[in-house]
Amino acid sequence: MIIKMDRVKEYEALVNIYEKEGLDISLFGDRIAAIIISGDKIVGLNNVEGVEIVGEEIENGVKASVKIRDNVELPFPIHLCTGFLKNEGYQRVIFDITVGKNSKVKFLSHCIFPYAKDFTHDAYARITIGEGSAVIYEDEHVHGEGVKMRSKTEVKVGKKGRYTGKFSLTKYRAKELKVEMSVELDDYAVTELVSKIKAVKDDSVEVKEVAYLNGRSSRANLKTTVIAFDNARANVVNEAYGLGEYAKGHVECHEIVKGNADVQTVPLLRVRNDKAELTHEASIGRINEAQLMQLMAKGLTEDEAAGLIIRGLLRGF
């Protein structure tokens, strides 16, 4: 790992937070391709065989390109760490990720803002996946009480490619969260997008997941789970467009409300090919009564049963 001398302290501070939060510190090891960002600085960068990460410091943030060659199968994930260790401020990060043909990689993206009180984070990622490649992109967060986060990811999946996007914000405040993910699928390409979010107090959550099933026999499965407590607000939009022959898509949204929370879900399915097939499933409201009663019949109170069910629903990936 290349660490600039004047940035060692920031690097170490991030490692300490990983340790404190129970995150995997081996991700900072030399065998892991990684870019470690703190505020508007690159504090660590490491490349491994088959992976080329190039970072550039820009106003209020960092822009990075990640290139993975053809036929690369990495035994370890690529670590994208975005940190901001002050209370207030603004940060933007831009990732341009290109994966060659027949490669298999996993990204672990960590957003580490533990002290944020009034902080805005803008993230934009463009991911292009070559023919026959498989990419998993997992997003995890450590947030302070006051994070305003806007995240947009645009993915293009080539023929027979596969993209799995997992977004999870369940242990910390969402505060003001806007997540947009869209995936365009070529022939026989597959995507699965899964988001799990907990909103409490006056948090505001907006999630939009879109799949364009352009290719023949392309497949998409979009799944969102939001648990909203107190006075939180959540709006989930799942869209799927069936354009290719024999394309199949499924969108699923489950929102559970406790207290005065205000939630809505909007599934939008549009088919422009008579051989395409799209389905949706949505539930909104309180916890499933049968699930509750069956746990209560084992001696749990309603609150205990609800707690166990919610814990399961929000479990990480």
């Binding site: 699930q291 746990l295 399961g312």
Partner: peptide, 16 residues
């Protein structure tokens, strides 16, 4: 019997 997402068999049997 109901299904429970994210709860393992062991957690279910020991009621969390």
């Amino acid at each position: 019997p109901a299904r429970y997402e994210g709860i393992t068999v062991e957690e279910y049997l020991t009621l969390g």
